[in-house]
Design a protein around this nucleic acid. Structure first.
Length: 226
DNA sequence: GCGACAG
DNA sequence: ATCTTGTCGC
């Protein structure tokens, strides 16, 4: 959708090739706010069925004000790539793109499970999806891939910077009292500040923001029979 | 070389 | 991610 060389959408022939694609793709990442009014947010998560070797992407479109689902989509595909830290995109992006192509409503913003720019090469899965689709995106991760941070205060809303090689790459955010922090980083077309704002607007009584929490449930329990 | 390591 | 039971804490 966005104007990037078609060769960057290729299936990597090896892990080394995948890394080359990431170095090239990172040039297109933008972390300045570039979106209009945000009414609908998409939460996306991927689950696996080890027996059939299939991946299942669950996508939910939520109204940002009511935090209620407006539409859901489930897409499945044979799992295409092994899990290699730093190369998660090549395992999950294809089936996620498939789900985004099937959804009827067009989201204004998408939350992806995993890192945005908080990645060794600045291209976590949220950035990867943002570049491929043109959608503004945010990485919502439950743990760190790279970088260091000071433990944020124990109260919901308290945060600290995630730093890597001297630069801020994300935010450690306490999403509710006394739980492990979430790691928020810009995926594409959004700033650190706005990324955290949108996640906070979607927090209720759980650790995960609603779009992510619902997508997570769907990826695990919906269509249990792939 | 050693340890770390999203989902 | 997924495999798995009970259990501690708000």
């Amino acid at each position: 959708m966005d104007h990037i060389p078609a060769s960057l959408t290729r299936t990597p022939e090896s892990a080394q090739d995948a890394v080359l694609i990431q170095w090239e793709m990172r040039k297109y990442v933008r972390i300045n706010d570039d979106f209009g009014t945000v009414k609908m947010i998409a939460g996306i998560d991927v689950g696996y069925d080890l027996q059939s070797n299939t991946s299942k992407a669950a996508l939910v479109i939520m109204d940002i004000d009511r935090l209620m689902p407006l539409e859901t989509v489930i897409a499945t595909d044979p799992t295409p790539f092994p899990y290699i830290p730093g190369l998660l995109s090549f395992r999950e992006a294809p089936v996620i793109i498939k789900a985004l192509e099937q959804v009827k409503k067009k989201p204004d913003m998408i939350f992806i499970d995993g890192q945005g720019i908080a990645h060794p090469r600045g291209l976590g899965i949220a950035s990867h999806i943002g570049i491929l689709t043109g959608y503004p995106s945010i990485g919502v991760a439950k743990s760190v891939l790279c970088g260091n941070y000071k433990e944020p205060g124990e109260k919901k809303g308290q945060s600290s910077h995630l730093i890597y090689k001297g630069n801020k790459i994300g935010t450690a955010l306490r999403s509710r009292d006394n739980v492990k922090p979430l790691f928020i980083s810009p995926g594409h077309k959004i700033s650190h500040e706005s990324a955290v704002d949108f996640v906070q607007k979607c927090l209720t009584r759980y650790r995960l923001p609603e779009p992510t929490r619902i997508a997570d449930k769907l990826s695990k329990f919906a269509d249990k029979n792939i």
